[in-house]
Lab assay of single mutants.
Amino acid sequence: MALNTPQITPTKKITVRAIGEELPRGDYQRCPQCDMLFSLPEINSHQSAYCPRCQAKIRDGRDWSLTRLAAMAFTMLLLMPFAWGEPLLHIWLLGIRIDANVMQGIWQMTKQGDAITGSMVFFCVIGAPLILVTSIAYLWFGNRLGMNLRPVLLMLERLKEWVMLDIYLVGIGVASIKVQDYAHIQAGVGLFSFVALVILTTVTLSHLNVEELWERFYPQRPATRRDEKLRVCLGCHFTGYPDQRGRCPRCHIPLRLRRRHSLQKCWAALLASIVLLLPANLLPISIIYLNGGRQEDTILSGIMSLASSNIAVAGIVFIASILVPFTKVIVMFTLLLSIHFKCQQGLRTRILLLRMVTWIGRWSMLDLFVISLTMSLINRDQILAFTMGPAAFYFGAAVILTILAVEWLDSRLLWDAHESGNARFDD
């Protein structure tokens, strides 16, 4: 018995066209964080690309023209004298008006014999932002004059995390709450300039795509075929072959399989920071003279006294001054041990922890910024005066060393310790 099946006739004509040209192939790229070699397709503007294995951002879609970056830099340069030299806060102490600005706080630190601690604050609040705007201006002028731009481009990517104007702005709020127990506070004209400078700096850093600047100024022929001998440069993120001198053909720094002496430098910085954190938390970090009496505060006791007036601000200072430094030390110690013992479990967790400490590390400088600003506000000789204690130097040095330890660690070593050939990683 035959089955009668109805015929289905399409209502619209289906047209099949042959592909007349070869589909576009992607360029081969190595991930600078996990060293995976993959094919990167062509990316349009405002599109980002991520590593298929570790999800690290390979290409950032946010990109401004150099002219727009230069305009932002010149605007920031105009704001800087007002943000640093004009009063941020006014207080009335014992019937006398006192003005506080950024430069005055750094000068008070240096004047009291601790120039190293003052230079830490100076670099993060004044030096690094000033280098940022002058570097962008150098790129703008240098591109037109045919100057060598490689050193500036190499420095810009590392400079971003040292620009800490946003953290200093939080420190202004913390210092205001600490001082309000002794005097009446009012915002100064410099505060508005400083807030504007923070906003412009944040926007500029978020749109400063150094890798795209490398592509514009020093374009290189990408690798179009897969080759395990391809290496990625950690300076400019170019994937290719080393030249005859073993250097990256684009930025001219040595092109090595792994960062040289990464573990040794990381261990040295980490152990030194552990040693410095002990006096930083045991010795007094601030000293207040009130009517001839002397009151010393460690980091913890200062947080407890701050909690009596504002528990939320005390929580912020606790996280930045105690929780973050010790968390960074514990995480980095764990990561280094996992590399030495070739741990194969929990790779995803370790990668996330490394990215976390990379982002939060700079916030530990908050305590030094609060001390710097408070020193310029309260300084009335023996009637009422505020000065920093010996722990300030140890704390600042420990924070900087932990930042350097994270920067010096080559994250690809975590993958080397893991089993080879993993296309995915999980716990």
Score class of each variant (00 low, 15 high):
D35H: 10
I96P: 04
S321D: 00
L88Y: 04
L130S: 14
S286L: 02
S206A: 15
N101G: 05
L139G: 02
T298Y: 06
L88A: 05
L278S: 08
E22K: 11
A187Q: 12
R247V: 05
W214F: 13
T201W: 02
R231L: 06
H252N: 03
K160R: 14
A196I: 15
C343R: 14
M365F: 04
I8W: 11
H90N: 11
R362A: 07
T110K: 15
G85L: 06
R216L: 05
V329Y: 04
W140C: 15
P151L: 01
G118I: 01
G142F: 05
P41K: 11
N209I: 05
I360G: 12
E157A: 13
N4V: 14
M155H: 05
W363C: 05
G95D: 02
G20I: 08
S273T: 10
P24Q: 10
G113H: 15
L69Q: 10
T349L: 15
R30M: 15
V102F: 14
A183T: 03
P41F: 11
L79R: 00
Y28V: 14
K57S: 08
E212F: 14
N281D: 12
F192Y: 13
V174L: 15
G95Y: 06
E211K: 15
P279G: 04
L89T: 05
S305T: 10
P242R: 11
L77N: 10
N4K: 10
V179D: 08
T349H: 14
G246H: 04
L213N: 13
E419Q: 07
H237G: 08
V203A: 14
L354Y: 07
A115K: 02
T15H: 09
S309P: 06
M304C: 08
C343T: 09
V317L: 03
S301R: 10
Y394A: 02
G95W: 12
A391P: 01
F122Q: 05
E215G: 13
L93H: 01
K229M: 07
V210M: 14
L23V: 14
I172R: 00
N422G: 15
T374V: 14
F141V: 14
A392K: 02
H237E: 14
L377M: 07
L290V: 13
L77V: 14
G105P: 12
V152C: 13
Y241A: 12
A397Y: 03
S321E: 01
L257E: 04
T75E: 15
K265R: 03
G240A: 07
W359G: 08
K13R: 11
T110L: 03
R348E: 11
S176K: 02
A115D: 12
T15Y: 13
D381Q: 04
V174R: 00
I316H: 14
L153V: 13
Q344S: 10
C266I: 02
L89W: 05
A423D: 15
L276F: 05
S119C: 03
G113I: 14
M155W: 03
L197M: 08
L354P: 12
Y394M: 02
L197S: 04
R350S: 10
V125C: 11
E42H: 09
A269R: 00
L145D: 00
A272N: 01
E215P: 13
G105M: 02
Y182N: 08
D243M: 05
S321A: 10
P87Y: 08
A128F: 00
L66G: 13
A268C: 05
Q244G: 11
S48L: 15
T5Y: 07
D243C: 05
L208T: 07
L414W: 06
W267E: 04
K57L: 14
T117E: 04
G127Q: 02
M164N: 04
I274C: 05
G292M: 13
E22R: 09
K57C: 12
M80F: 10
L300M: 09
W162V: 01
I287R: 06
V331Y: 14
V133E: 01
C251P: 00
L335E: 10
A280G: 06
L78V: 05
